[in-house]
Nucleic acid binder design. Structure first.
Lengths: 165, 165
DNA sequence: TATTGTTATACTCTATAACTATA
DNA sequence: TATAGTTATAGAGTATAACAATA
C-alpha cells in the first residue's frame, strides 16, 4: 500500500498505456518458458537437458565440441549435462575408433522414448498457451512469429531456453 | 561436424517440422529480452534496474515491502537494487515521519529524465523486433498477444524480465 | 604443437535467514 | 511482540582457464 500522507504522482510519469509487441513478447515468452519448465520437471528434466536431448536427436553422432558450437555454449558445460543424461541411460558417448579423442553422441532407446513423451508435453503446453485463441487466430499468430524469428536469424530447432532459466 | 564412419539417424527421431506458437514465443521472447538488455546497457542499466524504475514511476510513494510484493521478489533484493539507483540520484527513499520504519520511494527529476530515454529506447526496440511486419500485421500481432497475456493473468505493467536475465 | 574431453576454480546472481530500528 | 529495512550467509548456475589423453 501507499504510505499515508504521501502525495499522488504527477501524471507525466505514467508508462505507456498499451504495451508494445516487444514487451508482450518478452513477458509471454518468459511465462511460457516457466510453464514449460514446470511440465518437464515431472519427467525429471530441466530445460537445458531437454534442449540437449533434442539437439542430439536432431543431429546424432556429433562430437561434444561440435554440439557446443551449435548450441553456443562452452564445451565444459556439456560435460556435466551429458553426465546426468548418460547415467540415466538416455544418451550414449561412443568412442570413435579412428580418432579416440572424439565422442559420438547418440540417444538410447530410452532416450527416444522420453523424447516422444517430451513431444506430447510440448503439444499440451502449446495448447495451453494458445487457449485464448481460435484455431484460425493461432495459425495467424504462428505465421507472424515465424516471420519475426526468421527475420532475426533465430535457428529453427534451437531455442535459447536451454541456457537460461 | 558429424564423426566419419557414423551411421545416419533413423528418421523417427526428427523434431516437429514446424515449431508451434509456444516454442516461437519463448525463442523470440528470450531474443527480444537479450536485445533490449543490450540497448539499455548503454544507459548503464540492467533489466532489473529498468523494471524497478518503471515500477516506482507507476506507483510512487510505495514502501519497499509493498513494492517487493508487487514485483514478486524478496525484499532483500530490492535493497541492493535501490542502493545503486539511489547513489546515482535516480530514486529517493523518503522516511515517513508517521512511521519511521517506512521508506516512501520516489523518482528524482534525473530519474524521470532517464525514464523518458528508456521509453525512447523501448520504442526503437519495438520497431526493430517487428521490422518484418507491416503496420497492420503488427497491430494484429499485438492484439493477439494482449489476449494471451490477459488469459494467463500476466500483470500489465510488470514483466518478469526484471528478475531473470 | 594442436585438439577433445574433463576437471578445478572463481564469479555472478539470488534466496534464506539473522539482525536493527522502530512501533 | 510484530513489522520495515538491512546485512550476512549460503546455494545454484555458469564461465574461464588449467589439465590429461590423443592426434
Amino acid at each position: 500500500m501507499a504510505i499515508p500522507g504521501d502525495a499522488r504522482p504527477p501524471r507525466d510519469c505514467a508508462p505507456p498505456p498499451t504495451p508494445g509487441a516487444a514487451f508482450l513478447l518478452t513477458q509471454i515468452g518468459s511465462h511460457a518458458a516457466a510453464r514449460f519448465a514446470e511440465r518437464i520437471a515431472e519427467l525429471d528434466l530441466t530445460p537445458p537437458q531437454t534442449g540437449l536431448l533434442r539437439a542430439v536427436a536432431v543431429a546424432p553422432g556429433q562430437s561434444q565440441q561440435a554440439l557446443a558450437r551449435l548450441l553456443g555454449t562452452p564445451p565444459s558445460r556439456l560435460v556435466a549435462l551429458l553426465d546426468g543424461l548418460d547415467e540415466r541411460g538416455l544418451v550414449e558417448r561412443r568412442r570413435n575408433p579412428d580418432d579416440r579423442r572424439l565422442h559420438a553422441l547418440h540417444l538410447t532407446d530410452a532416450g527416444h522414448d522420453l523424447l516422444r513423451r517430451i513431444a506430447e508435453v510440448g503439444q499440451a503446453h502449446d495448447d495451453a498457451i494458445c487457449a485464448a485463441l481460435s484455431d484460425e487466430e493461432r495459425t495467424t499468430l504462428t505465421a507472424l512469429l515465424a516471420r519475426i524469428a526468421a527475420d532475426h536469424g533465430l535457428t529453427p530447432g534451437v531455442h535459447p531456453g536451454y541456457r537460461h532459466l
